[in-house]
Design a protein around this nucleic acid. Structure first.
Lengths: 193, 193
DNA sequence: AATGGTTATTAACTTAAGTTAATAGAAGTG
DNA sequence: CACTTCTATTAACTTAAGTTAATAACCATT
């Protein structure tokens, strides 16, 4: 499993032998079972997660409803950012949608660690920027596209997601009800025939 | 104007005398006139902006329409993040909605600068995290609230914005048409009387 | 293979947003 | 101050999403 981690992390940065050894000895690997909600709102985030294998859903609870904000798959970092930064209770919930294995990175900024292994600081910054870019794209999509257009965009950019994730979650991620997504799909399948 | 910068920046971090002097000598201050679009899509971002005074609108051009994604006011950092990180043409446009003064921070990560003045690195990370938290809140709002609820939320969290920004831009920021925002306002004013 | 439980689809109806256009109101300019 | 221009509101109509409920399709378990 650690080898898979190395493979994914090489997409971000080339770690030194020392850094790899340190990660192996100090960054825990954890596994969650399908559908397990392993981080609950109200808790204070202490760690940054990295998906080695599987798929994680970020959702908010609103009036007993779950509203999906994002999906994280292999090679992605995630955490309850605001909670981590401000030491406040998180509003986020994280759920494994498949049997999922993650690596836990230390809470940042960890200046002592960064001084010893500067690549971890670079890595963390890359992860932050990556997440920010993704978030900005989602916002762009919400302000500039209709639900139908967002659905079409998602198929284009991440068709694989539909093979892994329930449609109700995708509907929520698009900001609409499952019924509306069903209608959109019907509309599109009819207009293309 | 530099004093105003120091006042705002103190909300983030305490800079050393050396860092303050360096900023004064190396980080340019620029002013834009009301309505000026000072950064256009298609350009490649080279700088991080910091608002010293005024208000900046981030918008995307879609089929000749302008879609507002965010407003930046005093004390906020902004830039075309993806363009800056990947050296690709930006999709963002930035427009001063008032006469606006900004400070230009160097493109990051600037490892040489960070080594000499570590606080700039910390500052940049704080700015990134701040922007990410804001983005995540906006996404939470889009997936979990109706336009009307987003409008009510915005009044609660940032009423001052309504004194500074045209309603059409706020409508776009909420993901709806100006006419819809007008209707929402009417609905709410009637139901509260 | 049969069962029970979950997920997706469909339908009928309600509500609200999009669109086009006209009007009223506010702000900026000479 | 008058004029022009831009912005916000209103109206009428269209389109699509929300909602509730029923049904169909799919999965998991035994």
């Amino acid at each position: 499993m650690f080898d898979k981690f190395l493979k994914h992390i090489s997409e971000y940065i080339l770690l030194t032998e020392e850094e790899i050894t340190f990660a192996k000895n100090h960054f825990p690997i954890k596994s969650y079972t399908k559908n397990e909600v392993f981080f609950h709102e109200g808790n204070i985030a202490k760690r940054i997660y990295f998906v080695i294998e599987g798929c994680v859903r970020l959702f908010y609870s609103v009036d007993g409803d779950e509203k999906t904000a994002y999906f994280y798959t292999e090679g992605k970092f995630f955490c309850a950012n605001e909670s981590l930064a401000k030491n406040t209770p998180a509003r986020e919930n994280f759920q494994a949608l498949e049997n999922t294995t993650v690596m836990l990175f230390p809470k940042t900024p960890d200046e002592a660690l960064f001084k010893k292994f500067p690549n971890f600081e670079v890595l963390e910054r890359l992860a932050l920027v990556d997440e920010l870019i993704t978030s900005n794209r989602i916002i762009e999509s919400f302000v500039s596209k209709s639900p139908e257009e967002r659905y079409i965009e998602l198929i284009k950019t991440n068709k694989a997601l539909f093979q892994r994730v329930h449609q109700q979650y995708i509907a929520s991620y698009l900001g609409i009800s499952p019924q509306s997504l069903s209608r959109i799909r019907k509309r599109l399948s009819q207009s293309s025939n």
